[in-house]
């Protein structure tokens, strides 16, 4: 399962629309969640609706929260999305087999079995979460809380049975880059003290282009993984 989680406090203002980028993510099987941090209520109506739209296009959830609720929200959204993804997959299977997509349509005892399988999958499926952090100037005072919430997320992901990895990006980069990778795929944060070293805060918010970069990263990562698996298989055949 693949997820992208965006933490931002404002509207995108450069490049391609983040809503289009979110739809791209969805078509690549990546669910997009968005958290809007609203401490001084500085997001505005437009920003709030953009956050909502990004999540809708990306098949995920959106929340507007205060900094102190960030850790709790990030952790909760990730978990909820896992459940939702499993539910959707199971519903699609039911639709294909029974021509009916609601679990309620099953007889009670069957329903129990299906739900059990769903719980199992929720716990054991492998999960990748890419966090995309808005590091524009106004986010500066909030970055400590963002970092804390990433540590907290890792903690609850480690408690899962299945393999869980996270990667962390921030945007914009210092030299006109749309986004920068801070932390490559990892299953633990041991020895990582500061995820964001010294950031050059900039005024622009290229949310859309940054999201496209993260999608690219997902795509390349998966393609190369598949390729190395294939090579492994071929190698075995030759030997």
């Amino acid at each position: 399962m693949k997820q992208m989680l965006i933490i931002t406090d404002g509207c995108s203002n450069v490049g391609m629309s983040p809503i289009v980028a979110a739809a791209h993510a969805k078509s690549e099987g990546i669910t997009v969640n968005v958290v809007g941090v609203v401490d001084q209520g500085d997001l505005g109506e437009y920003g709030a609706s953009e956050i909502h739209e990004i999540a809708r296009a990306g098949g995920g959830l959106s929340r507007l929260v205060e900094t102190k609720e960030l850790a709790q929200t990030v952790q909760m959204m990730t978990r909820k999305t896992v459940v939702q993804t499993i539910q959707l997959a199971v519903q699609r299977e039911l639709q294909a087999v029974l021509g009916n997509d609601s679990i309620e349509a099953l007889p009670p005892e069957k329903r129990g079995e299906v739900v059990q399988v769903m719980d199992e999958l929720t716990e054991s499926s492998s999960l990748q979460v890419a966090l995309l952090i808005d590091a524009s100037a106004s986010m500066k005072p909030k970055l400590a809380s963002v970092e804390e919430s990433i540590h907290d997320l890792m903690l609850s992901l480690q408690a899962r049975e299945g393999k869980s990895e996270i990667a962390v990006f921030h945007f914009p980069g210092s030299k006109q880059e749309d986004c920068v990778l801070d932390l490559d795929w990892t299953t633990h944060l041991k020895g990582v003290h500061s995820i964001f070293p010294k950031l050059h805060m900039s005024g622009t918010t290229p949310t859309g282009p940054a999201m496209m970069k993260v999608i690219e990263y997902f795509v390349q990562h998966n393609d190369s993984k598949r390729r190395s698996e294939m090579e492994g298989m071929l190698g075995d055949d030759v030997v």
Partner: peptide, 11 residues
């Protein structure tokens, strides 16, 4: 098509 879409600069 996908390779082109995810390689080029969006802007």
């Amino acid at each position: 098509w996908r390779a082109i879409t995810h390689q080029r600069k969006p802007t």
